[in-house]
């Protein structure tokens, strides 16, 4: 019953340390991001997304600005990717999205290329220009085809 300030302080420090550890694991390592309630949700349609997966990074000029939240198939059998980017980032209307690969065999991510328009995309809008993933196997396949039998075309 009697209060012991030192013990309370130690318990407080312990709890803070514990939550800091959880926060470190979640945010710094787990990639949990808080984009605020004003997070900007955009969609982009691709013919081919390769190995892109939810929580893949979204970057602008190599700087991480958000992540992929969902991947669905639309009625035209195209992949519809939902991106969540920082709410305070303005994305011009004529921007483009490309699926790129980090290194030769690394993870795939989406690079946003901002356009020059003055009008900005709002939540729910679609990024108009997209470039699909490059599938290494197909490239090699094409290369072999071209060298081997040029009589196809």
């Amino acid at each position: 019953m009697s209060k012991s300030p030192v013990r309370d302080l130690i318990v407080g420090l312990f709890v803070i340390a514990g939550f800091t550890a959880i926060a470190y694991l979640s945010v710094s390592l787990g990639g949990l991001t808080y984009t605020g309630p004003g997070g900007l949700f955009l969609t982009a349609k691709f013919d081919e997304i390769g190995g892109l997966a939810p929580r893949a990074q979204v970057v602008v000029g190599g700087v991480k600005v958000g992540q992929v939240t969902a991947i669905d198939l639309d009625e035209d059998y195209r992949a519809e990717v939902t991106l969540e980017v920082n709410g305070n980032l303005a994305v011009p209307e004529d921007s483009s999205a490309s699926i790129l690969t980090a290194g030769v065999l690394g993870d795939q991510y989406i690079a946003l290329e901002p356009g020059g328009s003055d009008a900005m995309l709002q939540t729910g809008d679609e990024v108009p220009y997209t470039q699909s993933a490059i599938i290494l196997e197909r490239l090699i396949g094409k290369l072999v085809q071209n060298f081997g039998g040029g009589d196809d075309e």
Binding site: I22, V27, L29, G30, G31, L32, R55
Partner: peptide
């Protein structure tokens, strides 16, 4: 390697 492989919703939530 740590940052790339650990996912919050699977790994960290599962751990907690």
């Amino acid at each position: 390697g740590l940052e790339g492989s650990i996912k919050f919703s699977d790994d960290v939530m599962g751990s907690i």
